[in-house]
Write a protein that binds this DNA or RNA. Structure first.
Lengths: 209, 209
DNA sequence: TAGATTGTTAATCGATTAACAATC
DNA sequence: TAGATTGTTAATCGATTAACAATC
């Protein structure tokens, strides 16, 4: 099984490779990709070997082929659909952020308990009452969820997501979710992140002074 | 030097402890806190020892004192101010997210290159032209930055943040920043996170089926 | 005391780094 | 060939986990 960190870096490499492809670059060496990704050359090579793609010592890696290999690895050929639950400021921003970015991976429905927020189209995405999550998720074959509700509601909403057949959750709520095995949760805790920044920024200054 | 992971968990523990304090809980055992945080009891104890706070075998940890200890550790007594650069959908959502949450750590100014977005007050936060970053940052003693600009602009904007005296950056732009030592960067890459969720959710289904 | 907790130490695990032989 | 790259293997590092003695 491949590690979470590696999958994250592969996603990053692909994005960087797309930039190179647009620039017309045909080949790239591990150390070049490493410099762009903020990694080491050996790490890049190890990660790419995990995908089963090997470079040559004379040309390094072929950009186009590598993008294709990463696509085979990272993307579902049939495409994957996500639901967003919690249409607040953050939820709306995320809808616009992911709107139409990837054909293979898109948010196709949004949900909220507030009747005033449902029955619309937000950034090309229809909004529904939370009650209908299960029905809509099964109908649209949604297996991924983005959770942008307040912390207090997070656990119970996450549980209904799981009941609706969702197997992966991107959790923005600042609350650890207790989920059954087989459900993958990735936490994005902005408060924690900002506090880390504050702590280490201060620490750096203490050390310097 | 304390690790990034530990600092992150301490931030989480404090939030959980605040919930307990509101409920009127006086004491808490490491295994209780661990269950809430999704960690192990030994890990909680180790983390708290890092702050220099030790529990007793009979009562565990005193909630109020622990919150105070964590505050001493995590917060700057003088308070820390942050600037947000990039007033798009995401930037606005983040301004509202952090608005008035912590007295000791708040976003006090927002910046953008678009003249149409500046000279206003957004969620209690004044917006300025990006040109004025250096002046305003020094005037308001801003040392932290939140970066919510498009990937293409991220590196150059981050460099002007550093010139303005900013020493910690919460980076939402999907681009690795090359920063001088002494500047701490915490990346929140939502695209990468969503792709990880998509990958592991699919993987789980493959394993099950 | 007995029991559940604590802090401490040693063992394990995983990822990263460094050193090396192989390739064109 | 010489040189820069590659994949492979061994060594290092750090964090986590497990086992233990100490405490009330």
């Amino acid at each position: 099984m491949i590690s979470q960190k590696t999958v994250g870096r592969l996603s990053l490499y692909r994005r960087l490779l797309n930039v190179l492809a647009v620039q017309g670059t045909k080949n790239v060496y591990s150390h070049q990709l490493a410099a762009m990704a903020g990694a080491t050359a050996a790490q890049v090579r190890r990660d790419l070997m995990a995908v089963g793609y090997m470079g040559t010592s004379i040309r390094g890696y072929a950009v186009d082929e590598l993008i294709k290999s990463l696509g085979t690895f990272l993307d579902d050929p049939q495409g994957q659909s996500a639901a967003l639950v919690g249409i607040g400021n953050l939820g709306r921003a995320i809808l616009s952020y992911f709107s139409g970015r990837r054909p293979n991976l898109s948010i196709v429905a949004a949900f909220d308990v507030d009747p005033g927020k449902v029955g619309r189209v937000i950034n090309g995405c229809r909004s529904y009452p939370l009650d209908e999550l299960e029905t809509v998720a099964r109908e649209l074959d949604i297996r991924l969820g983005v959770l942008t509700v307040p912390a207090a509601a997070a656990q119970s909403v996450a549980e209904s997501m799981v009941r609706a057949g969702i197997r992966g959750i991107l959790n923005f709520a600042p609350a650890p979710l207790k989920m059954p095995t087989g459900v993958y949760v990735e936490d994005i805790d902005m408060t924690m992140s900002l506090e880390k920044v504050a702590y280490f920024a201060r620490q750096g200054e203490l050390i310097r002074s």
